[in-house]
Measured scan of single mutants.
Amino acid sequence: EDPKKEILLAMLMVDKEKKGYVMASDLRSKLTSLGEKLTHKEVDDLFREADIEPNGKVKYDEFIHKITL
């Protein structure tokens, strides 16, 4: 499956209130437990690539855009 789609799906599952962003810690939890599970190192690399703080907010569109360039 398309990794971009899988990450967006994980974000939507976490963002039940439809705020347009999720906490990095919640996204990490989903990405390491769903679908093609990522390792913590892979998530760290994704966050670093997208300039996301480990305890920060992750906005869908910015995150998807940064990791798919």
Rank of each mutant, 00 (worst) to 15 (best):
E1Q: 15
E1F: 04
E1Y: 03
E1M: 10
D2E: 03
D2C: 01
P3F: 14
P3L: 15
K4R: 13
K4C: 08
K4Y: 13
K4N: 11
K5E: 10
K5L: 13
E6H: 08
E6P: 14
E6Q: 13
E6S: 11
E6M: 05
I7T: 13
I7Q: 15
I7M: 13
I7R: 15
I7P: 12
I7V: 12
L8G: 06
L8M: 10
L9P: 09
L9D: 14
L9T: 14
A10C: 02
A10I: 00
A10S: 14
A10H: 11
A10Q: 15
M11Q: 10
M11W: 02
M11A: 14
M11V: 03
M11Y: 05
M11E: 14
M11L: 10
L12C: 10
M13P: 12
M13H: 14
M13T: 14
M13A: 15
M13C: 10
M13I: 06
M13G: 15
V14K: 15
V14R: 15
V14Y: 06
V14C: 12
V14N: 14
V14Q: 15
V14D: 13
D15K: 07
D15E: 12
D15C: 13
K16R: 10
E17P: 14
E17G: 12
E17D: 15
E17V: 06
E17Q: 10
E17R: 05
K18F: 03
K18A: 10
K19S: 15
K19A: 11
K19P: 03
K19L: 06
K19Y: 07
K19C: 11
G20M: 01
G20D: 14
G20N: 10
G20E: 14
G20I: 00
G20F: 00
G20C: 01
Y21I: 09
Y21V: 12
Y21G: 04
Y21L: 10
Y21F: 09
V22I: 12
V22S: 02
V22F: 02
V22W: 01
V22T: 05
M23I: 03
M23K: 15
A24Q: 05
A24W: 03
A24G: 06
S25P: 09
S25K: 13
S25F: 00
S25M: 01
S25N: 11
D26Y: 05
D26G: 01
L27W: 01
L27K: 01
L27F: 05
R28C: 02
R28I: 02
R28Q: 03
R28F: 01
S29V: 07
S29I: 09
S29D: 14
L31M: 08
T32M: 12
T32G: 09
T32A: 09
S33E: 10
S33Y: 00
S33A: 09
L34K: 05
L34R: 08
G35C: 12
G35R: 11
G35W: 05
G35Q: 11
K37V: 09
K37W: 10
K37T: 11
L38E: 01
L38I: 03
L38C: 03
L38M: 14
T39V: 01
T39N: 05
H40A: 12
H40S: 13
H40K: 09
K41T: 09
K41L: 07
K41A: 07
K41H: 06
E42Y: 08
E42F: 06
E42I: 00
E42D: 10
E42H: 00
E42P: 03
V43N: 01
V43G: 01
D44L: 00
D44G: 02
D44K: 01
D45N: 07
D45E: 14
D45W: 02
D45A: 12
L46N: 03
L46C: 02
L46S: 03
L46G: 02
L46Q: 03
F47Q: 04
F47R: 02
F47S: 02
F47K: 03
R48E: 12
R48H: 04
R48M: 11
R48L: 08
E49C: 04
E49Q: 10
E49S: 05
A50I: 09
D51T: 07
D51E: 10
D51Y: 03
D51L: 02
D51W: 00
I52T: 06
I52G: 02
E53Q: 11
E53W: 00
E53F: 01
E53G: 10
P54T: 05
P54C: 04
P54K: 08
P54G: 09
P54N: 09
P54E: 13
N55L: 03
N55T: 08
N55H: 08
N55V: 02
N55I: 02
G56Q: 12
G56W: 00
G56T: 12
G56N: 03
G56R: 04
K57I: 15
K57L: 14
K57M: 15
K57G: 02
V58A: 05
V58Q: 00
V58K: 04
V58N: 07
K59E: 07
K59S: 10
Y60F: 08
Y60Q: 01
D61P: 02
E62M: 00
E62R: 01
F63R: 01
F63W: 07
F63Q: 02
F63G: 03
F63P: 01
F63V: 11
F63K: 03
I64Y: 06
H65N: 08
H65F: 00
H65D: 13
K66L: 06
K66I: 00
K66G: 05
K66V: 01
I67H: 08
I67E: 12
I67A: 10
I67P: 13
I67S: 11
T68D: 15
T68R: 14
T68Q: 15
T68E: 14
T68M: 09
L69H: 15
L69R: 15
L69Q: 15
